[in-house]
């Protein structure tokens, strides 16, 4: 196990981000976990709660390239993936790579672009490569898409279908900071620009973390617990469509990453239970009774998770 340990531990990256972001511990941990697990994260929160800053801080901390794509209704797939243009000097077509070719890609307000553009991004997320013209180009490793959604402005948005949401490893709800945290934000950034801690770890470290997390032990009873949790979402009250087997895989991957982040060699039921809301919340389709009875979706999910006894 020690041979799989990188020189820099992922917790140091989380601590480096925490020096920039005041509070938002769950968000910071989720970003680092997604990086270790090699997955993509959907961040939902009101404007101005440091979603974008957290993503920039993550990219800076691992010394990776960072690109931001602001999704708008007139965005085209080629604006993301890239295109081939004619170079007048050489009289040849040359490939211009789009902003998706980066280690950390921030897809800001992903639901503001039409389905065609969303599909281009999500296909790239799945395949980790893009085809421009006749050539296929792999994305740099590590690669993570951090997409944001604003739940408040519904006008002019295109809802992401469940099949596309399913490709995100986790969905994190970024809440407002506490009163003390808000005061600390004023103290820290009231007169100074935001400073990012750069290159706390290297891209090779991240690759080592990903390899190390895959070696974390997952006991059969914890495996059964994951399956029971995912299956409990199917047919539960207020839930029209439950989570897919991909959710079970995501939960296991993220739980391994959490154990690795906490310097543990094995996954515990607590890892699974704590991460279940983030993995499952965007994979469920609720029926109309949820609205009719005015029941919060998070409470339904919480009840489902609580109904499955931990091993």
């Amino acid at each position: 196990m020690d041979t799989l340990r990188a020189a820099v531990r992922p917790r140091e990256v989380a601590q480096a981000i925490a020096q920039t972001i005041v509070g938002q511990t769950e968000t910071v941990d989720a970003l680092v976990l997604a990086l270790i697990a090699g997955g993509h994260v959907l961040l939902e929160g009101a404007p101005g709660v440091a979603k974008t800053l957290a993503c920039r801080a993550l990219a800076a901390a691992i010394g990776g390239s960072f690109k931001r794509i602001q999704f708008t209704p007139d965005l085209l797939p080629s604006d993301i993936v890239g295109t081939r243009i004619f170079d007048g000097r050489t009289s040849e077509f040359v490939t211009v790579r789009g902003p998706i070719f980066a280690n950390i890609v921030l897809a800001d307000e992903i639901n503001r672009a039409p389905a065609k553009v969303q599909s281009a991004l999500l296909e790239g997320m799945q395949e980790r490569r893009a085809t421009i013209g006749l050539e296929t180009h792999p994305f740099p490793a590590p690669f993570a898409v951090l997409a944001t959604m604003n739940p408040l402005d519904g006008d002019g948005t295109y809802a992401l279908p469940l099949a596309q949401l399913d490709r995100f490893l986790a969905k994190v709800v970024v809440g407002y900071p506490t009163r003390d945290e808000e005061r600390e934000i004023l103290n820290r950034y009231g007169t100074h620009d935001v400073e990012l801690r750069e290159a706390v770890a290297s891209l090779d470290d991240v690759t080592d973390w990903q390899r190390g997390a895959r070696a974390v032990f997952l006991d059969d009873r914890v495996r059964d617990y994951i399956v029971d949790l995912v299956r409990a979402t199917r047919g539960a009250r207020y839930i029209d469509h439950g989570a897919s087997p991909r959710a079970a895989l995501a939960l296991a991957t993220l739980a391994r990453a959490r154990a690795y982040l906490d310097d543990r060699r094995f996954v515990t039921p607590d890892d699974v239970r704590d991460l279940a809301p983030a993995v499952l919340r965007h994979r469920l389709a609720f029926d109309y009774r949820l609205v009719a009875d005015d029941v919060p979706a998070e409470r339904v999910l919480g009840d489902v998770i609580a109904s499955v006894p931990a091993p």
Partner: peptide, 10 residues
């Protein structure tokens, strides 16, 4: 917890 869920070899 270690004994219950830890790696089999350990």
């Amino acid at each position: 917890e270690n004994a219950a869920f830890g790696p089999t070899a350990e």
